[in-house]
């Protein structure tokens, strides 16, 4: 637990920089079941943070709390300047414009073309003219390597392609932070690679990303820092290389041993 409360610096960045995400003492229960029991961590702008841990350790719930999809019972969440979680203390519309989220099941809208999936929020939420929205859609599709699929429907794409469109859709709204909830868990290894590639590129471009993932190889290679969750807590966390080189807790050692 020695490094659990530490502010995680991105490589080459000063440690006293203001974090863009700061979670303190987060508590979340589903009825009598306590899922998060005092989670604290902070993320610096431009960092990619991988959240790892066994199933049921509270990773996904924590991520959903960050985006205000779950109400919380205790602690504070500050993300891009928004105080999330307590009813009435944050503006959902503003949060949505700053924080993007990508899901395990892609959640593309099946009745809309790829392009319309992306332009929908641009026109409805950001009130951009159609031509502008279109230009943005094509640009982000280009970024994920799917520009030629603009007029296709989700069902015509492979799982990996659908997930890349989902990332593009989120990206189009120019968020400051992106949350990824086990985005490759539904994909076979071959398709996983193409999605991870897109995420790696995003991180290189300076996007702040928090990803819940089972891809330990990817986390170890690409993430700036890692948070290991266990029993609803941040059991161990720190810069990736250091954490994997010298795990402090027996639980993390066992976890790493079981997945790598």
């Amino acid at each position: 637990m020695s490094r659990a409360e530490a502010v995680l610096p991105a490589e080459g960045q000063p440690i006293d920089q203001v974090p863009i995400v700061r979670v303190t003492g987060l508590e979340k229960s589903f009825g009598p079941l306590k899922v998060l029991d005092g989670v604290s961590f902070a993320v610096q702008p431009g960092q990619m943070v991988a959240v790892v841990g066994r199933s049921g350790s509270g990773k996904s719930t924590m991520l959903r709390c960050l985006n205000g999809l779950e109400d919380i019972q205790g602690g504070t969440i500050e993300i891009c300047g928004h105080q999330v979680g307590r009813p009435g203390s944050w503006n959902k519309a503003q949060l949505r414009s700053d924080v993007g989220m990508v899901f395990q099941s892609y959640n593309l809208f099946p009745h809309l073309t790829v392009e319309r999936n992306i332009t929908l929020a641009l026109t409805l939420v950001q009130k951009k003219p159609k031509a502008d929205a279109r230009r943005i859609a094509l640009a982000v599709l280009e970024q994920v390597g799917l520009a030629e699929k603009a007029q296709a429907y989700p069902e015509q794409l492979s799982g990996g392609q659908q997930q890349r469109v989902a990332i593009a859709r989120s990206l189009a709204l120019s968020p400051q932070v992106m949350l990824f909830d086990e985005v490759t868990s539904a994909l076979d290894p071959e398709l996983t690679v193409e999605v991870l590639k897109v995420m790696e590129d995003l991180s290189r471009g300076g996007m702040t990303m928090i990803l819940v993932t089972h891809e330990m190889g990817f986390a170890r290679r690409v993430a700036h820092s890692v948070i290991f969750m266990h029993r609803g807590r941040v059991w161990e966390s720190g810069p990736t290389a250091e954490l994997f080189a010298r795990p402090q807790t027996i639980e993390f050692q066992q976890f790493v041993g079981s997945v790598l």
Binding site: A93, R96, N107, A121, V125
Partner: peptide, 19 residues
């Protein structure tokens, strides 16, 4: 999950229902 995804994109409740 469809509704959740639309919510995360910032669509308002009525927009989610309509679109």
């Amino acid at each position: 999950t469809q509704i959740e995804a639309a919510d995360c994109l910032g669509l308002k409740r009525l927009q989610v229902i309509l679109h």
